[in-house]
């Protein structure tokens, strides 16, 4: 059994402009010790999806359908109180993008971490402090015994994010949700944090759901990746499989549009247009309005997640995934690096 099983999750926001279908039928699983990357553009519903897991959706939003099973327990049935007592912090914890606004500026970093520990465990304040220092040391804060008494503003951006991670680890959660934790940081600082995530996973054996728009980051920290587009998962596979053998046209464009340091502008092929509104998403396949291989049926049929080839772990929601039509594009753009992968793809069919 997977640690986390999300099935057909639908989280809607009931606004005066209409119903925003931010998450509209999302399913994914996270195994124990596994790290799942949730990738997509802004507005894809990644953040809403992970906030739904934590029960952090507020009015006018609501989980309207679907099930979230954590370790066999149905989270959508739990009350706010039960979620707070049993789940948040000690089972699942979350790390946000903006550490500065997630930390309380009028308490020291230590006080905030100690509070989490005292609230969620039966440790004494003294033990909590010891544990907090230990945690700060684990996340690479220099001189933790001194710096524990400093206020968040005395920390640099990278250290604030490290403090957030320490706080998330405080009660030994089995699942950590990271919502774009390094997006606001310098690449050099990001590199350190990403390494830290690797170490933590090894040391604490936690599972992770990592939300990001950056495929490069996914490659560093995630085992598997689910690509989201306009409230749905359109493709899911182990990272290398996804990168070398993308089946969904959206995944393909995403890979081709990523700005990387080893390519030149000519090789860049951005997706045209912008994501349609989640208030009135296109019928059928939601990507069809920006898709290069769209055909008649795409507007009528909502593609289910098909298993790709023999790979049971690779699923994609495209009606034409086995046509081979869409494969010409990536072949053109990755001629130097992915030649073997492309050949393999064609023999698959």
């Amino acid at each position: 059994m997977s640690l986390l099983e999300v099935e057909d999750l639908q989280t809607y926001f009931f606004t005066s402009d209409g119903i925003v279908r931010a998450v509209d039928g999302v399913s994914f699983e996270v195994e124990t010790g596994e790290s799942l990357g949730l990738v997509g553009e802004s507005g894809a519903g990644k953040s809403v999806a992970v906030k739904s897991l934590m029960g952090l959706i507020r009015e006018p939003g609501r989980i309207v359908n679907g099930s979230i099973k954590y370790d066999g327990q149905e989270l959508t049935d739990l009350s706010e109180q039960e979620l707070r007592r049993d789940i948040r912090g000690n089972e699942i914890s979350i790390i946000f993008q903006d550490a500065m606004s997630a930390l309380n500026p009028v308490f020291t970093v230590g006080e905030q971490i100690e509070e989490v520990i005292v609230e969620n465990t039966d440790r004494s304040p003294t033990e909590a402090r010891e544990r907090a220092i230990e945690l700060l040391d684990d996340v690479g804060i220099p001189d933790p015994a001194q710096r524990i008494d400093e206020y968040p503003h005395q920390y640099s951006g990278g250290m604030q994010q490290r403090a957030m991670i320490a706080m998330a680890l405080a009660c030994d959660p089995r699942l950590i949700i990271a919502d774009e934790p390094t997006t606001a940081l310098d690449v050099t600082i990001q590199a350190g944090i990403l390494e830290l995530f690797d170490e933590i996973q090894e040391k604490y054996e936690t599972s992770m759901v990592y939300v990001t728009h950056d495929l490069g980051v996914v490659r560093e920290v995630c085992d598997r990746v689910a690509v989201m587009y306009l409230g749905r998962v359109v493709e899911s596979a182990p990272y290398e499989e996804l990168y070398r053998n993308p089946k969904h046209p959206y995944t393909q464009s995403l890979i081709n549009s990523v700005v990387t340091p080893d390519e030149t502008l000519d090789e860049l092929d951005p997706i045209g247009g912008t994501m349609p509104s989640a208030v009135s998403p296109p019928s059928g396949c939601r990507f069809r309005t920006r898709c290069s291989v769209e055909f008649g049926e795409c507007s009528q049929l909502t593609p289910p997640l098909y298993d790709v080839g023999d790979e049971e772990t690779h699923t994609t929601a495209c009606l034409r995934y086995d046509d081979g039509v869409e494969r010409e594009e990536p072949a053109l753009h990755e001629s130097t690096t992915s030649e073997p992968a492309v050949v393999e793809e064609q023999t698959d069919d």
Binding site: P142, S156, G158, V187, T188, I189, Q190, A191, G192, L194, E195, D214, L215, G216, V217, V218, R219, E220, Y239, E240, Y243, R244, I255, V258, T260, P261, D262, T337, S338
Partner: peptide, 24 residues
């Protein structure tokens, strides 16, 4: 060199990031 090696590259055939410089 350190700055470049810290940029994540999605291509699995390229080397991964290295955090060679510490601190701020």
């Amino acid at each position: 060199r350190a700055l470049l090696s810290a940029v994540p590259n999605p291509d699995p055939d390229q080397p991964g990031i290295e955090s060679v410089i510490q601190g701020n």
